[in-house]
């Protein structure tokens, strides 16, 4: 359902991706791990069209993103990017909720303005999403009044309100207090169990091991190893994977 083929991406003169490929099946939960600066965020952002790239292609459910390098995408490319964004929901490390809107307004803004959903329908859907993330009663609050964990759950609901076919999570729990990490992870776990296609960049190794169908290890802009979690975590083939895991698991 998502295929990344021979992806190349530069930042200025520095080439980060020298040809990365990945196939994601429908319903698959893929966890991206790897040292800081290895390219996990950039990879997800490319799929969501937030970063342009310089070579290869990304196909999401038949819609193709082309490399445009550092240029502004043409009108046609911009349309394709928006189509892809409607199919993939993105959740950011720092939530990026709209602080001037209430929880409910955050959730219904895009369905109403982008998809043209009737407001009553959007509100009804938003309420059912809030129930699902255990936040009913908070629809009138502003993001600033919520804890980090609550904000991140609203951000997930906001992405789900667009009825995406896949969800991209970029370190969804890294900015959270330890006691609220669990509530966010359990919402994600629920999504995976329902069969949502998910890509998650995370440093939570326990969680990765538990929910991932497949673990991808990034290092210096390359996928150095991939496979089922029990294999990666117990018998890593690569020296670099072993080093990385021993470093993070010791912490």
């Amino acid at each position: 359902m998502i295929s990344v083929r021979d992806l190349q991406k530069n930042f200025g003169d520095v080439q980060l991706f020298k040809g990365v490929s990945l196939e994601v099946e429908k319903g698959q939960a893929i966890v991206l791990i790897g040292p800081s600066g290895s390219g996990k965020s950039t990879f997800l952002r490319c799929i969501n069209g937030l970063e342009t790239f310089h070579g290869g292609e990304i196909i999401v459910e038949g819609t193709v993103l082309h490399p445009v390098g550092g240029n502004r995408p043409s009108r046609q490319d911009a349309d394709e990017i928006r189509k892809v964004r409607r199919k993939t929901g993105m959740v950011f490390q720092h939530f990026n909720l709209f602080p001037h809107l209430t929880v409910l307004e955050n959730i219904i803004l895009a369905p109403v303005e982008v998809l043209g959903v009737k407001k009553e329908d959007a509100v009804r859907h938003a309420r059912s999403l809030l129930e699902r993330i255990n936040l009913n009663g908070k629809e009138g609050s502003h993001p600033g009044q919520l804890s980090g964990g609550q904000q991140q759950r609203v951000a997930i609901a906001r992405a789900l309100a667009m009825k995406p076919e896949a969800m991209l999570f970029d370190e969804p729990t890294s900015a959270l207090d330890p006691e609220t990490v669990g509530e966010v992870l359990s919402v994600i776990r629920g999504l995976v169990e329902e069969g949502m296609t998910t890509l998650i960049a995370t440093h939570e190794m326990g969680f990765a091991r538990e929910v991932a169908h497949k673990v991808i290890v990034f290092d210096e802009g390359e996928i150095i190893e991939s496979g089922p979690p029990e294999e990666i975590f117990t018998y890593p083939k690569k020296e670099r994977t072993r080093n990385f895991l021993s470093r993070v698991l010791r912490l």
Binding site: N48, R85, M90, F98
Partner: peptide
């Protein structure tokens, strides 16, 4: 207004104009 606001709006499928009107300018 933090860069993340525009990115969040775009990732929800909004056009730049819409994001500007509904998300960036009010803030």
């Amino acid at each position: 207004v933090p860069q993340g606001q525009m990115e969040a709006a775009l990732s929800l499928g909004m056009t730049r104009g819409l994001a500007l009107r509904k998300v960036i300018l009010p803030q």
